[in-house]
Computed example of a mutant assay.
Amino acid sequence: MDGIVFFRTERLAEAVEFYTETVGADVWLEQPDCTILVAGDFRFGFCEREGAETDGTLTFVVDSRERVDLLHDRLHTVADESPRYNERYEIYQFFAEDPEGRTVEVQTFEHED
């Protein structure tokens, strides 16, 4: 079974540009007032509506610290701080914010010895 998470947006073109140009997602499907994006196995979409939906966190899971650092380089102007190891969840991560204020997380799972 597959799934898609949708968000209402008041700035469809800007959201699509941010996630494709900055985060690195691809357009999976264009619909009349919605765009569905894909990053690996993660599908998420934005639909032009009145009132943006900004709750929740879009978490992008990558395969290494190097990929986290690379995405941080792309997102540094909207990131909360530098990537860091989170002992509680055994992940290397950082948080950022998209153009409408949604929380974006980039992380990789790892175990410190």
Rank of each mutant, 00 (worst) to 15 (best):
D55F: 05
A39P: 04
R43C: 03
T108W: 02
L75R: 00
Q107L: 13
T20L: 04
A79L: 05
W28R: 13
M1C: 08
D55G: 10
V68A: 08
H111Q: 10
V61C: 11
V38S: 04
T59H: 15
T22D: 08
R43I: 00
V38M: 03
T54G: 02
D69E: 15
Y92Q: 04
R102E: 01
E17I: 09
L70F: 10
F42S: 08
D2A: 13
M1F: 09
L29R: 15
R84D: 08
R84E: 14
A79N: 05
E81L: 10
T35F: 00
V106E: 03
R43D: 01
S82F: 05
E48A: 08
Q31M: 15
I4H: 04
F94M: 02
T20G: 06
A13C: 03
G40I: 01
A13I: 06
S82K: 12
D55A: 11
D2M: 15
I36K: 00
F42W: 13
A13G: 07
A13Y: 05
E17F: 12
A96K: 02
A96S: 11
L37P: 00
F46T: 04
D80H: 13
M1N: 12
I36Q: 02
L37D: 00
E21P: 06
Q107I: 06
V104P: 00
S64E: 06
F60Y: 12
E97F: 01
E10N: 07
D69T: 08
V68P: 07
M1P: 10
G45T: 00
Q31W: 11
A13H: 11
R88Q: 14
A52H: 11
P83R: 02
D33P: 00
D73I: 02
L71E: 09
E105A: 07
L58A: 05
I91P: 02
D55W: 07
D63A: 14
V78Q: 03
E110C: 09
R49K: 11
I36M: 04
V61T: 15
A79M: 04
Y92T: 01
Q31H: 10
